[in-house]
Computed example of a mutant assay.
Amino acid sequence: MSSKDERNLTQVVEKISKMDEPRRSLMQQVHEIIVTAAPMLKPRIWYGMPAYATSASTPALVTLRNDDRLNLAITEKAAFRAAGGVDGELMPAAWFFETVDEATAQRIAEIVRSVVD
């Protein structure tokens, strides 16, 4: 890991550590899911949010938001595919969560992997 990647990771971990509980624990859990599911993505701060990109100099593909609700989002820089089925041509890009159970963790990992496939 390059020194810039290490600094960026430190910034993301610090950003998450400053959140109030229980959000801090949830965001830490989602951060771990993301870096495990797609180890090629590099954590960084993107517009003040924890985010994940293919390198320190490329736009973020996935972001975590700590607003009124916790949010996992795919940025407009990721390749999108229509959802199909009942969602037709809609392209899902954001998911709110309040807890992370096993099924949610698996879905987060699938979403993140789909961004880098």
Rank of each mutant, 00 (worst) to 15 (best):
F96Y: 12
M40E: 12
V62H: 10
S17R: 09
L26Y: 09
V112Q: 04
A79W: 03
M91G: 01
L70M: 13
I33H: 08
V30F: 02
M19H: 07
D87L: 15
F80S: 14
S25M: 03
W46N: 04
S114F: 02
E6A: 15
T10W: 05
L41V: 07
S3E: 15
E32R: 11
G88F: 08
P59Q: 09
I45C: 09
E6N: 13
P39V: 12
F80N: 10
G88T: 07
Q11H: 13
S17P: 01
M27W: 02
E6P: 07
S25L: 01
L41D: 04
M91C: 06
A78H: 03
M19D: 03
L90A: 11
V35M: 09
S57H: 14
E102F: 01
S3Q: 14
L70N: 06
E76I: 07
A79G: 10
A83D: 14
W95H: 02
E102K: 03
S55C: 11
R65F: 04
G85D: 14
M27Y: 02
R23P: 01
D68L: 11
A78W: 06
I111C: 01
I108E: 00
T36W: 07
E89A: 15
R81P: 00
A79D: 13
M19S: 10
P43W: 10
A53V: 04
G84V: 13
A94H: 11
A60L: 03
Q106V: 03
P39Y: 03
R7T: 12
I16Y: 12
V30W: 06
P50C: 00
R113M: 08
E98W: 05
E21G: 05
A103L: 03
A56G: 05
A94P: 01
K42I: 10
P59K: 11
N71M: 09
A73Q: 09
H31M: 09
A38M: 08
H31T: 05
T54M: 07
K77Q: 12
A37S: 12
R44I: 05
T75P: 05
P50G: 02
M91H: 01
Y52F: 14
R23A: 06
E89N: 14
E21A: 09
I108G: 00
M27T: 04
A94F: 06
R107H: 06
E14M: 04
T63F: 07
A94E: 05
I34A: 00
D20T: 12
F97W: 01
F80H: 14
K18L: 08
P92A: 13
S25N: 07
V62Y: 12
T54E: 10
A53T: 04
E6H: 12
L9P: 00
I16C: 08
V62E: 08
S2Q: 10
